[in-house]
Amino acid sequence: MKTILSVQHLTVNLDGHSIIPDLCFELHGQDMLAIIGPNGSGKTVLLRTLLNLLPYQGKIEWVEGTRIGYVPQRVAADRQLPLSVRDLLNAKAHFLKLSQTDTERIVSLTSLTPELLNANIGVLSGGQFQKILIALALLGQPNVILFDEPTASLDELTEERVYELLHRLKEEHGIAVILVSHDLSIVYRNATAVLCIGKNGACFGSPKEVLTPEALEALYSAPPKYYQHLREHHGL
């Protein structure tokens, strides 16, 4: 498969602290790359660096024509803004010069109801807000989406729906996904490649190579709790 992202010797230092030291990995078209690691290991920093939002040393090369969607862990948006969900989607659609049909397609794909579209962003629940962030990321037909713990504030049912959507995006729309997650069962079931970041360095490979009990114990400094059998029974 075609390489769409190549990261070579990436180093990120913030406020004099080394957050990511000398990281190398690649992302191929239709890959679902999961980034795992304990809290504070630099997973969100890595995503923001890949998006060119933070200063870095080394090489980050996206293939030409890459369109990126981003679903952050949280958005510190002012909930007092006089802004409806429709206002927000329209702003992005107008900026990217998308047609009304493009917006309607995303509205349908993410199952946004008319009530939700007309709601002010200040009254949305955590799950609804996450859904809007996903819809916003999908506008503009991205071929790569970066998800930073997309289900952190969601109930189990909504979480399941988000992963179904992720899977559909990958399979039906050929979108590559980079996913930060703490849920190792989800990672094992969905990811095609895993990048682990921890205090003892980084590792990169297929889930079977990386998600071994020994490697996870070294990464988290604790015995792992995940269930490999789910892949066989509930493989999405």
Partner: peptide
């Protein structure tokens, strides 16, 4: 206004 990061990515 909504998110400087998301705006920059857009």
């Amino acid at each position: 206004l909504f998110s400087p990061d998301l705006a920059a990515v857009t």
